[in-house]
Amino acid sequence: METIPVEHGFILAGILFCLGLIGVLTRRNVVFVLMSLEIMLNASGLAFIVAAARWGHAEGQVMFLMILTLAAAEVAVGLGLIIQMFRRFQTVDINVLSEMKG
């Protein structure tokens, strides 16, 4: 069986991660920041799966499941916070939302 080379999987994960990171750094809308964060999480999940497949270990898949759960929980909390933020400040622009300066 022809297998996809492991490097390809990692490169894809790396590209996804950088895309997510760029999204986090450049987007002003909090919703998109959150989405970009999800992409980064999934990128790392992909890396785990690739690694698991390459070395035939189950831990990688376990970790992916955990990341999945974590991401789900995070999205739930994150969206809830965003709704609260929008209600209080009438905006989701993170440049405006900089209350926590020293």
Binding site: V24, I94, N95, L97, S98, M100, K101, G102
Partner: peptide
């Protein structure tokens, strides 16, 4: 304190 801008980005 100056480094704590409050900007998430």
């Amino acid at each position: 304190v100056k480094s704590q801008t409050g900007s998430l980005r």
